[in-house]
């Protein structure tokens, strides 16, 4: 019962913190552009306003278009509650594994792409086609990267994988380094950041994720934006969980959880600052170079897998 309550609290924390994370990232980016920026709370204000606005639907919008924001938000929320942020074993993270996590994100993406095509605008269809092309390359690479760790832990369950990392002595494992680099590359692509996609662009021709949202308004848009913020937080938390889980609470004691929260926030901020620096100093990749980028991520995680067998498995 207690752990169930904690699971709910953790999911709630992820959802409520996600806009702040997006705000933090854009504030850091604003400072890197020598501006002051709108502040950490701005994404919250945007969401709040959008919920108060009218919803405008195109004449030929079908049920897919109307249902998609709810499906996408719920699927992302489910995925976010699978990932342990503060406590290692929560009920949901024990039932669902990494493959279920990827499947939940794929479900959200499937409906998002359908909704992009539903209205029939040129940009929506273009965004859907790009999203599908890149996700077909990014998903296997992500699974491969996670598998490097899963093989060491003999499980695809995130809780087991974290426990394995926490209990094994700290050694430099080259396979994990390869998997980490691959995972960072994929996380950038999956969350639609520079150099793959630009979340602040106004140029429809360069859009991937935003192009599918162009027809949404009001509360639908708010849910879509919110879901993509949750996804960003989800991926950063997943990277923390898989590659640097030290500090996460293994038992539900108050002190342990407060400490875990502080350490988690610290790591989160570190990753976001790194992301902001990279986003500011890199240009967006040409669209046709993205498959090569994702291919590189796949090759890196595959190398990690091979190195794991060559060097780290004792015969």
């Amino acid at each position: 019962m207690n752990s169930l309550l904690f699971q709910l609290l953790q999911a709630l924390l992820m959802v409520l913190l996600a806009p702040l994370v997006a705000g933090f990232l854009s504030t850091i980016k604003a400072h890197l552009q020598n501006r002051r920026g709108a502040g950490i709370m701005q994404p919250w204000r945007d969401i709040q306003k959008l919920f108060a606005k009218e919803v405008v639907l195109a004449d030929h919008a079908s049920w897919i278009f109307r249902f998609t924001p709810y499906i996408v938000f719920t699927a992302t929320l489910m995925a976010a509650s699978v990932v342990p942020a503060l406590l290692v074993d929560t009920p949901l993270s024990l039932t669902a594994d990494v493959i279920a996590l990827v499947a939940l994100l794929a479900l959200a993406r499937f409906f998002l792409s359908l909704a992009g095509m539903d209205i029939g605008t040129a940009f929506g269809g273009m965004g859907s086609s790009r999203e599908m092309t890149f996700s077909a390359l990014a998903e296997p690479a992500m699974l491969m990267s996670v598998l490097v760790l899963a093989i060491g832990a003999h499980s695809t369950n995130i809780t087991t994988m974290i426990t394995h990392t926490l209990t094994t002595p700290l050694l430099i494992q080259p396979s994990i380094a390869f998997a980490l680099v691959a995972m960072l590359m994929i996380a950038v692509a999956e969350t639609g950041r520079i150099p793959i996609d630009n979340p602040t662009t106004h140029l429809e021709l360069t859009m991937i994720h935003e192009a599918m949202l162009l027809e949404y308004s009001g509360r639908h848009l708010a849910l879509m934006e919110w879901a993509s913020m949750v996804k960003l937080l989800l991926f950063t938390t997943l990277i923390i969980d898989l590659f640097m889980p030290w500090g996460i609470a293994s038992e539900a004691s108050l002190i342990g959880i407060v400490l875990a929260l502080a350490i988690w926030l610290f790591k989160l901020m570190g990753l976001l600052i790194i992301l902001a620096v990279f986003e500011t100093s890199l240009a967006k990749l040409r669209l046709f170079e993205v498959p090569q980028y994702l291919g590189t991520a796949f090759v890196l995680s595959f190398l990690g897998l091979i190195i794991h067998y060559m060097l780290e498995v004792s015969v």
């Binding site: 604003a30 552009q33 020598n34 501006r35 002051r36 920026g37 709108a38 502040g39 701005q42 204000r45 306003k49 606005k53 405008v56 662009t201 106004h202 140029l203 429809e204 859009m207 935003e210 949202l213 162009l214 027809e215 949404y216 308004s217 848009l221």
Partner: peptide
């Protein structure tokens, strides 16, 4: 731009009329 930075007052420009006030 960085001198005036209208974004800090909560005003931003959007890509679609559906997002706009």
């Amino acid at each position: 731009n960085a001198y005036y930075d209208i974004e800090r007052f909560g005003v931003h420009f959007t890509a679609s009329p559906r997002f706009a006030d």
